[in-house]
Design a protein around this nucleic acid. Structure first.
Lengths: 208, 208
DNA sequence: GTCTATATCGGGATAGAC
DNA sequence: GTCTATCCCGATATAGAC
């Protein structure tokens, strides 16, 4: 399986990710993690002592994965339009392959707010710098003055929500798996268009 | 507390909503529901027989609440721009007071997909009619041809995601509770602007 | 480091008295 | 309809052999 090259400790962590991502903290079973890792249940306790610890390790990994990709692109030296396009493309692709991550993280923030404050500190988001940069770029390139926080949240919302809401979308529109895939592929172009259009200053069509 | 006028069965359901919304299926405890309702644990079983049943009742209630508001506004006879404004205002207000609903529902869709198919049937979304209507309105009022499914999902994303991601937003920006409230108030105007701007056809500023 | 065995507890569910 | 008592399983966690 390729797993054979990993140490037990590593296999346990990988297994824990899989189980926690899918089942959440309360739904996850130490037994299932052990089975998934191909080791005895006690060994999980040997390495991580208890469920909270291993959850924390998994959460930290998930959070930093998501955030690092996010910062990477937003802090790059691309012009704003290219940044948005790159971001959506990269993030939607990444999230399609890691569909459980965002919901797992959002749930974790509600379930374990205290444990999680610490982790947030390590993965600095430096929002001030980021907001300044967004404001400046949008002002210069689109000639529009707008609260960058809303832009930022809107970009995240448009990228992340559809991934989280997959089953809902599929039920609403009656999509097969292939249709859903095509829908997400379409979004890689339609969402940047939508955002950039929203941020481009223009007079209303007075065609009435 | 005003609970005194409710029957035991009603109090149990109300208690179950509270507990399930906050803790999810796996995190919820029958004991906690009973305590919250001020009754004995066995009485919960008496009325609902098992945990799945009561969860289903709670989910159905949550889903129909969310969907009915959604359909109400989208199927109204307002022009599209007013529709968007009304929708965002109404939905953001409603969601602020029911912050746990969307995440609860999204999680439910993953955890109990089979149970939930049935419920979806009852609360018809008639997507075809809705999509036709959106396409027609956007075409006529904004003179733009765009896949209405993406518009619909974008509107949902921009309304729902920030509510779900409250703790994340608060941590990223270091918002106090009051600041967060103001941020959401701002969104009631900034989001409709964003959407309507995105949907208004216009030439790019060639100011370079 | 890895396993077996076991302690301990909590939670869902039922039986049955009132 | 409401309560007490209890069953029984499953889950976390630990002790201790190898």
């Amino acid at each position: 399986m390729g797993n054979s090259v990993l140490s037990s400790e590593e296999r346990i962590l990988e297994a824990a990710k899989k189980v926690f991502h899918h089942k959440g903290f309360d739904g996850a079973r130490m037994q299932e993690i052990a089975d998934e890792a191909g080791v005895n249940k006690s060994l999980v306790h040997y390495y991580y002592r208890n469920k909270d610890n291993i959850f924390q390790a998994v959460f930290e990994d998930a959070f930093s994965k998501l955030i690092s990709r996010l910062n990477e692109i937003f802090f790059s030296e691309l012009p704003f339009s290219a940044k948005i396009e790159t971001f959506i493309d990269y993030y939607v692709t990444f999230l399609s392959q890691n569909a459980y991550l965002p919901l797992f993280i959002l749930n974790g923030l509600y379930e374990k707010p205290d444990q999680i404050r610490k982790i947030m500190g390590k993965n600095q988001l430096s929002p001030d710098r980021l907001m300044d940069q967004i404001r400046k770029q949008v002002k210069e390139e689109m000639n529009i003055d707008i609260n960058p926080m809303h832009i930022y949240i809107n970009v995240l919302a448009l990228s992340i929500f559809p991934v989280i809401a997959k089953p809902l979308i599929q039920t609403i529109f009656g999509f097969s798996n292939e249709q859903l895939l095509r829908f997400f592929e379409e979004r890689k172009t339609s969402v940047p268009e939508f955002i950039l259009n929203a941020l481009t200053s223009h007079e209303k069509n007075t065609s009435r």
